[in-house]
């Protein structure tokens, strides 16, 4: 940030991102190899009570399968938490948006449908207000240094260049963009600062950085150097919850939980920390955020 300018009234949001598959919270590396971490409602509740500025549910298989369980998770969460809740995954029509909002979402996140039919962004923003419509851009760096947008959680390439797409998304009326570095997602190597900055500079709507933080310092970095308006965190806080705060939630979790039961506290390159740890770090770095 420029020296000598006051940014006191710019307040960075720390958003708890929860990837959902069926009834479970999952986490993957490079959007592959999903691990079951537990019941999303338990994690969401904890984050809500411990300083999360927003909650963000992403159904990572919704484009492929049906997603009734997500509706139930959203309703259960919305009833108990009084902070904004964004829901993404498989939102393809005005009716899908209406259903998500009716279940208790405050905003919806669109990716695949936006790229396939860009006018859908405009239609959705006109119908529900720009601030309800978040567009996700999943970026993968190409050999020529440009970033291309992918869909279906990084599975399918589109050939769409990311910065141009971000500008178009903003012009079509989206209220926010969440920019995911698929290359960094789940690696712990840190956010892609260059990618985040390019997108944040290119548009005049808020940009949420997502994918890659392995320690709290990475979160500070993507704000001060990457110029992110908000940050989404997942592995960092999920592993902290599992290692330090989890109670008896395994009993209610379906699927493969051997990873959870291994009792580990080290998670590759990732040094877990809580939302409070992150916010204390931001505060020490003179970045404004809600305590």
């Amino acid at each position: 940030m420029a020296v000598g300018q006051s940014f006191d009234d710019k307040v960075i949001r720390v958003i708890a991102r929860l990837d959902i598959k069926g009834p479970n919270l999952v986490k993957g590396v490079l959007l592959e190899g999903l691990r079951v971490l537990g019941k999303p409602e338990d994690f969401a509740r904890f984050y809500y009570e411990n300083g999360a500025d927003e909650l963000f549910y992403q159904d990572v298989v919704a484009s492929l399968y049906e997603r009734n369980s997500l509706q139930e998770i959203v309703s259960a969460t919305a009833r108990k938490s009084f902070i904004p809740l964004t829901v993404g995954g498989g939102i393809r029509s005005i009716n899908d948006i209406r259903e998500a909002l009716r279940a208790g979402a405050d905003k919806v996140c669109i990716n695949t449908a936006a790229i396939k039919h860009p006018d859908f962004i405009h239609e959705a923003a006109s119908k529900f207000g720009s601030s309800t419509i978040v567009v996700a851009i999943e970026a993968i760096r190409q050999p020529d240094g440009l970033y291309h947008a992918f869909i279906d959680n990084g599975r399918e390439m589109t050939g769409v260049e990311v910065v141009g797409w971000a500008k178009r998304v903003a012009a079509l009326g989206a209220g926010e963009i969440v920019i995911t570095s698929v290359d960094r997602e789940g690696t712990g190597l840190g956010y892609d600062l260059g990618l985040t900055k390019m997108v944040a500079k290119a548009v005049d709507i808020p940009v949420i950085a997502h994918g890659g933080p392995g320690k709290k310092e990475h979160v500070g970095e993507v704000i001060s150097l990457g110029e992110a308006d908000a940050v989404a965190v997942a592995s960092l806080i999920h592993y902290d919850f599992i290692a330090n705060r989890q109670s008896n939630m395994q009993s209610r979790t379906e699927g493969n939980i051997s990873y959870l039961q291994s009792g580990r506290t080290q998670f590759g390159r990732i040094t877990p920390c809580s939302i409070k740890d992150i916010k204390n770090h931001l505060h020490d770095s003179h970045i404004s955020c809600r305590p």
Binding site: Q5, K10, V11, P206, D229
Partner: peptide, 11 residues
């Protein structure tokens, strides 16, 4: 400087 985005979405 494009620091203050519109809409304002923040606490």
């Amino acid at each position: 400087d494009n620091v203050f985005k519109v809409p304002q979405i923040q606490w």
